[in-house]
């Protein structure tokens, strides 16, 4: 009797396993053909020289050594870091601020949310073209706005110094996407916490500092990681607004654009793969670093409630 039960249980679990893998099979096949396989192959390519016509040549560390003396690569790395260092923190602060506003109990708050969220769905070629026009040095709306304030606007996309800030400003137009995530986070904070803080005599700023912000940290953490992953991969805007060049004078040549140029313009498949791996490792290191220091600032609900 005991034994029979055991057997049927075992059968159940092997049956479960078979069915489980049946349902997972599309993803597993996809992993093999479009993820795992390509990753391994691209790692091999990173140590090779190949133009897709002549046979593959193993060149050891050559591709990685080359990077240190390749000014265009170094530029692309600098530009990508520059963009990330400014756009990610500004984007997070901006989206939290907008989310706090959108969490108010106003009658028109739904309409406001829609307006703030709208630009984030228009991301892509069309919005890049709109910004080319907004940033036009002589007839663009942005320099016109600045001129009202008595400021002579820069040449933006035609100026080595101002081209990168232009992309950072553009990225802030899309804070609505993250705003929705923070808004969901804010609405998930239990009312009792605020009530308890009020009883303790906390003012508005104190409630934000000791209740809202700590309760929001898990969302900020998740969002920070994803924002960095995404900002390191900036491509479309730069390609469209600089005609695929990353100009002026390589000042907007970002890593993904350089990978694209090396692979599909110059057909240096090995070198392009090597740079892609450097990008991957940078993203990985950033993510790991954040997990490591997250213990110091990310609060999970359990801790706070104690």
């Amino acid at each position: 009797m005991e034994n029979e039960k055991k057997i049927s249980k075992m059968k159940m679990s092997t049956q479960d396993a078979v069915w489980g893998y049946v349902f997972l099979s599309p993803w597993i096949l996809g992993m093999v053909f479009f993820m795992g396989g390509p990753i391994i192959f691209s790692l091999i390519l990173a140590f090779c020289k190949w133009d897709m016509i002549t046979p593959i040549n193993f060149v050891g560390m050559d591709n990685f050594v080359k990077m240190f003396s390749d000014m265009r690569f170094l530029h692309s790395m600098y530009n990508t870091f520059y963009y990330t260092i400014f756009s990610v923190p500004l984007g997070i602060i901006g989206s939290i601020m907008v989310a706090l506003l959108m969490n108010q109990k106003w009658k028109s708050v739904r309409l406001l949310r829609t307006i703030y969220y709208l630009p984030s769905v228009t991301a892509g070629v069309a919005s890049a073209i709109i910004w080319m026009w907004l940033l036009n040095p002589d007839f663009g709306l942005i320099n016109y706005g600045l001129s009202i304030l008595g400021i002579k606007g820069p040449q933006w996309m035609a100026d080595e110094v101002w081209a990168k800030p232009a992309f950072i400003i553009m990225s802030l137009w899309g804070v609505g996407g993250n705003m929705i995530i923070y808004l969901a986070g804010l609405q998930g904070i239990p009312r009792q916490l605020y009530e308890a803080a009020e009883i303790d005599g906390a003012g508005m700023m104190q409630k934000f500092r000791y209740v809202t912000l700590p309760m929001l940290t898990p969302v900020i953490f998740f969002n920070l990681i994803m924002s960095i992953v995404w900002s390191f991969q900036i491509f479309t805007q730069v390609y469209v607004m600089t005609g695929g060049q990353g100009g002026p004078a390589d000042s907007t040549l970002v890593m993904v654009l350089y990978i694209y140029q090396q692979a599909f313009k110059f057909h240096n498949m090995g070198y392009a793969s090597a740079i892609a791996w450097v990008l991957f490792i940078i993203i990985l290191l950033f993510t790991m670093l954040q997990f490591k220091i997250s213990g110091g600032w990310v609060h999970y609900e359990g801790e706070l409630k104690k």
Binding site: M35, S42, L45, Q233, V256, M269, F280
Partner: peptide, 17 residues
């Protein structure tokens, strides 16, 4: 965790496939 992998890593081999 595959969400963290930049598409550029798999782009070239996938293109060749």
């Amino acid at each position: 965790s595959t969400m963290m992998i930049p598409a550029q890593v798999t782009m070239i081999p996938t293109f060749m496939l």
